[in-house]
Computed example of a mutant assay.
Amino acid sequence: MSVNPVNSVDSATLAGTHGEAGAAPLFEVERLASGYGRIPILGELSFAVRGGEHVGILGHNGMGKTTLLRTLTGHLPTTSGRVRFAGQDITHWSPTARAKAGIGYVPQGREIFPALTVRENLRVGCLLARGGEEDTIAGILELFPRLKAYLDRAGGALSGGEQQLLALARCLCAGPRIVLLDEPTEGIQPSIIDEIIDTLKDVARRRDLTILLVEQNLNFIASLSNRILILQKGTVTREIPPDVVHDPALLDEFVGIA
């Protein structure tokens, strides 16, 4: 296999290499910096995602992956740089304003409401839905049929994989255009990971959904991503094709995280 990763992110990477040719990026990050108080985590980070793309982000722990998603969703302030979504500068928008604009977020650890039933969790997700609650939930259950049998069960009583499906379903109730996923396979039995992959592919196809995925499970990120960005020390350093992650020698040579 021939692989030619770049040492730094070039203009083609910044613009995105998939999606409709010539179309403006749906999501664009330019020289972004962020962190926690006086501790900088992200610095001079740039990339773009076109509508319909599935882009993975891979890197060692502590390289800023979760910080990036929290900054993109407005949960952490941007200290410099710019974030644009659907042609609008959203750099200083609140998390709620970004969610209303069409940015969905499933955080690490899922953060469902364990004391609420599955139905009640979905109703929370409907607070930003454009349609009626009943119709929205009915449509979501067609995408997540496993949840139909658990509607009156507390979210905390579900398995880890079922909770992840619920977190995804709740996020999609708002009808986002892009979903940011943070480590969706964390703490999940391998038997349900393939179901999550199939579900995400089906949902993305049906809803023309764009995905930005942070994940350490190499098979999962390769199965879902059109391309993978490498995050090192708070900045995007390279882009690789998803098939590289299936070759440990190449991954170690080019990325250094095998």
Score class of each variant (00 low, 15 high):
G62C: 10
E142C: 09
A157P: 04
L251N: 05
S80M: 08
L168T: 05
P95V: 07
K65H: 12
E253Q: 15
Q164W: 05
R153G: 01
N217P: 04
L229H: 12
N219F: 06
P107K: 09
V255R: 04
C173T: 05
L213A: 07
R206T: 07
L69V: 04
G87N: 11
C171Q: 01
T199M: 09
G175I: 02
Q88T: 13
G132V: 01
V179M: 00
P77F: 08
A21K: 14
S11P: 00
A174Y: 04
E186L: 08
N121W: 08
G175D: 06
E186C: 01
M1L: 14
G109A: 12
P40Q: 10
D208Y: 10
V244T: 11
T117V: 08
K233W: 04
L165Q: 13
G51N: 14
R123S: 10
G37N: 03
T66S: 15
L45D: 04
I41G: 00
P40G: 05
E183N: 06
Q189C: 00
D198V: 10
G43L: 01
A222V: 00
S225W: 02
G155E: 10
L181M: 12
A115E: 14
H60T: 11
R227N: 09
I188P: 03
R170V: 05
D252F: 04
F113N: 07
Q189L: 04
L165D: 00
T117D: 06
Q164I: 03
